[in-house]
Write a protein that binds this DNA or RNA. Structure first.
Lengths: 123, 123
DNA sequence: CGGGATCCGCATCGATACTG
DNA sequence: CAGTATCGATGCGGATCCCG
């Protein structure tokens, strides 16, 4: 990846897309958007997620300033995550995509079936 | 990944995000949005991409009905790719995200620096 | 409860070579 | 020119164990 590429990976959109493309990030943002949540609560709501990915994704989101972490020094530590104003604006920017997905998914899937059908006689 | 997860991976948004998160898909869509292009022209415009990934990404986009492939039977085969109306609508749905990226990237990066700075004394 | 550290399989991606 | 096929490295992501 030498420098000078017209459309290379360090454009802002690519950078953000990498975050948004993260398997769990948008899901987490979508949950926290509704209400703050604790670590294991998040874990239970998404339970296909491993604690490693949850922890890692939350850390990235926090690093990006999209999510805030509150640690309360109770007897067993209590940690609550909430979305930040910045995170809120991102969540809103993703909405059109969410909407597109819901309205056009069937078109995409129909196209996929057509494509797969026209390919299978090439056996 | 057992079934029954409240927010699991087969929601429409996740499905689309997987496509959009593809490293090159949005880039390609962005190029084809302006004008149809040939295989090697695309390759030259993005040249960090390998021909394998270009071919693969184009095939996926075509399968999803977002891009159309025209093969012209000239002496050396000529193939031109163009965006479809459906692909156009997706490209437009991505625009808010692109805009968010451009306006907030500096905030994100500032947050990252703050975060990294506050962490480094934990050595 | 809220994680960090480690091990490891599996999919992804790049490089190379070959084809029509 | 426009790809396909194969190989090998890399790294994401899951499982498990452990700690404050």
């Amino acid at each position: 990846m030498k420098p000078g590429n017209p459309y290379n990976a360090q454009c802002p959109t690519r950078l953000i897309l990498d975050r948004v493309g993260d398997k769990w990030a948008v899901l987490l943002l979508g949950l926290l958007r509704k209400e703050p949540m604790r670590f294991n609560a998040l874990r239970r709501h998404i339970d296909g997620i491993s604690q490693k990915m949850l922890s890692q994704t939350l850390k990235n989101l926090e690093r990006d300033g999209l999510v805030k972490r509150h640690a309360i020094a109770t007897v067993p530590v209590t940690v609550e995550y909430s979305i930040t104003p910045l995170g809120m604006t991102l969540a809103k920017a993703v909405d059109p995509l969410r909407h597109w997905a819901e309205t056009h998914l069937k078109d995409v899937q129909a196209s996929q079936r057509r494509y797969d059908g026209s390919q299978k006689d090439a056996a």
